[in-house]
Nucleic acid binder design. Structure first.
Lengths: 223, 223
DNA sequence: ACCTGAACACCGTTCAAGT
DNA sequence: ACCTGAACACCGTTCAAGT
């Protein structure tokens, strides 16, 4: 072990990679993505920004590593035995976990999946899908479909949060509609008064269950 | 009509609001959101950036107006008669339309829905849902659920595009997995070789249909 | 009221130079 | 190899001042 960081010849490394990752994790956790900057991170670390670039080629690359590190120490939850309920539980767990990390939204747009660390989720998902009669390709398709819902749910929550932060004063669009619009679209007119309520009553779990049920039904149709 | 922009007393307005909106629309269309900046827009208009701020309080506000203007001259597509097929068609149309505007993703995160202009979509959607036996609240719930899928689909496409742009050299994570991971997650190991294919074969329409079917099934369950 | 010039307070990233 | 100081090329937004 000649090159272990702790047992190293010569001048010790001033800025170990892990130190950068943990500092970045903390900075993201406390201030969110918009409070994060390479300069602020460098200040926290007491180094120059260029020193960080020695370890990571771009800010996005650093973010990816941070996300991977966080995914590594995620504990696996208890999952139900019934495959349908197991699918629902995995998806809800995924949503809730990613929702704890408000800054992941910015990474999700960039791409770069978390990869290996969250592999057990994919494994559990595919197992449950298989138990329900899905072939390998079908299981993959189901995962892709569900992933789209997950991303959409996270974005919707972020948008709702942002709207609450900006100004609670400015009302939702459903409160701003004039009467001339209502005659053109009668069904919307009927829905409009209830809109805010329905929005508030939206339960993620219910929607996940309905999406999953639609996918399960498509398994039966195919065989 | 004393204050019509064209028939106006005194010095004419140098920078009408509409000019800013059209210029911003063009700049966004050609270069995307990342090429857009208030300075570049001001350059295109031959004005100072501060002049733009005289019309719009923030960049986000300008974007919202641009999106609204684009939504206004959206033509309504031919829709199928059967309510299930109509729902699927509306959702697919919505996805394809928003996908033409690569920069909307940045707005979607910020929040601010387009509002009145796309009202006919909501109206058609709610009508079709009602025909299928959904109550008002159920129709609203269905729209919210479907919207999440739409956002997720748009984000997924953006992410895929970004990955193609960055470097076609860097492979997808499914090509990078080492053998030690495979023993721990046998189902993933089985799926992995097919992963890229399944990803490529993903059909948005199919997924939309399955999600819609799940929601339709939940209508029957409730009554 | 409408607009300009110039600034404020930031960004991500690069690079010659030091040790 | 590892790191610093200083710069490059940008941002969104504000504000005193002009007409």
């Amino acid at each position: 072990m000649p090159d272990t960081p702790s047992r190293r010849r010569g001048r010790p490394i001033r800025l170990p990679r892990d130190t950068v990752v943990t500092a970045a994790t903390r900075l993201l956790a406390t201030g969110g993505a918009e409070a994060f900057s390479m300069r602020r991170l460098a200040d926290d670390l007491g180094t120059s920004t260029a020193a960080i670039y020695h370890h990571f080629p771009t800010k996005a690359a650093l973010f990816t590593v941070v996300l991977g590190a966080l995914a590594d120490d995620l504990q696996r939850p208890e999952l139900p035995d019934a495959p349908r309920e197991r699918l629902i539980a995995i998806v809800c767990y995924l949503i809730d976990t990613l929702d704890q990390l408000p800054w992941v939204a910015d990474i999700l747009v960039t791409g770069q999946s978390t990869g290996r660390s969250a592999m057990w989720m994919l494994n559990e998902f595919a197992d449950a899908a298989t138990e329900l009669g899905a072939g390998d390709r079908k299981a993959g398709y189901m995962y892709f479909t569900v992933w789209r819902f997950v991303v959409g749910e996270l974005m919707s929550r972020r948008a709702a949060q942002a709207q609450r932060d900006t100004e609670p004063a400015q009302p939702y669009w459903s409160d701003l509609i004039t009467t001339d619009q209502l005659t053109e679209f009668p069904t919307v007119a009927r829905l409009l008064p209830q809109w805010a309520d329905v929005r508030a009553e939206f339960r993620t779990e219910t929607a996940v269950a309905d999406v999953i049920d639609g996918l399960i039904a498509s398994i039966a149709r195919e065989r």
